[in-house]
Amino acid sequence: MIEKQASAGTRIDRERVVDAGFRSETAATGSGNRIDAVFDRLRLKGRKGLIAYITAGDPGYEATADLVLAMERAGADLIELGVPFSDPMADGPVIQQASMRALAGGTTPAGILGLVRCLRRQTQVPLLLMTYYNPVLHYGLAAFAADAAAAGVDGLIVPDLPVEESGPLLTELQQHRVYLIPFAAPTSTPERLARAGQLAQGFIYCVSLTGVTGAREGLPPGIEEFMQRVRVCTDRPLAIGFGIASPVQAALMSKLGDAVIVGSAIVSLVEQYAAEREMMLQQVSALVGSLKQAISQVD
């Protein structure tokens, strides 16, 4: 059903998203943003968060919806939906290929907003869109911000939009209380970290290493020192991503921040079990569950 609605022509989808005016459930906390509500709750419980990433539309909108609900049940605290782009320069092979599959299947930004709107009838888990800038720019910054908010999107993560260029999008998103998540990288200078800290909404996405997305083994060198440098710049939660694939890594990394982000490892399972929906959901749930368990046992 979701498949059908979301994949109907892009124009129609956009109208539906706008017409739906689905905003009644967005006010979860004082800030009105579900991301803050979840991090507040985690902090009160003294817990670390798990952010799970999948590429939207791989292998189809309905599968993405099922995966979101399954990952939430398995313990994901926030969920990132990747908006596939033809030229994903910050991504490694796993997410590149997922993007190509999603695009070949006809996935569009409007379709993904339709998917989010449908999901919002079933879940209040914070949903963030991870998208390169061009699809948003082409959609129109004001229209995208309005439609994303109406659909129930809580935040945007735009890997090719540094602080210097983020002004126009930020202005539009702020009008709709949708967050733009800033990045911190191991190469970021103290000045840049301070600026990201000041502007941060929701959380700061800390890139654990110099590189693209994709599973790695072990911990990147210098990660502790890097996280300390970010920590002194902000009181916002810190989420660590890039290279985290296993529960052991997740447990170690979660000690250094407030949440860990896992993407490629999940997307690999989606790819592997694309033809067997039940198996795919089981495998992804099992991984998300073990990641959640691993970060929950950290003192």
Binding site: M89, A90, P159, D160, P162, E165, T187, S188, R192, T210
Partner: peptide, 22 residues
């Protein structure tokens, strides 16, 4: 100073590369 030719140009790259461009 940030590489704009009118509305064109700029620096649309991951944060990791921004310090290298600076």
């Amino acid at each position: 100073a940030h590489g704009h030719f009118g509305r064109f140009g700029g620096q649309f790259v991951p944060e990791t590369l921004m310090p290298a461009l600076e």
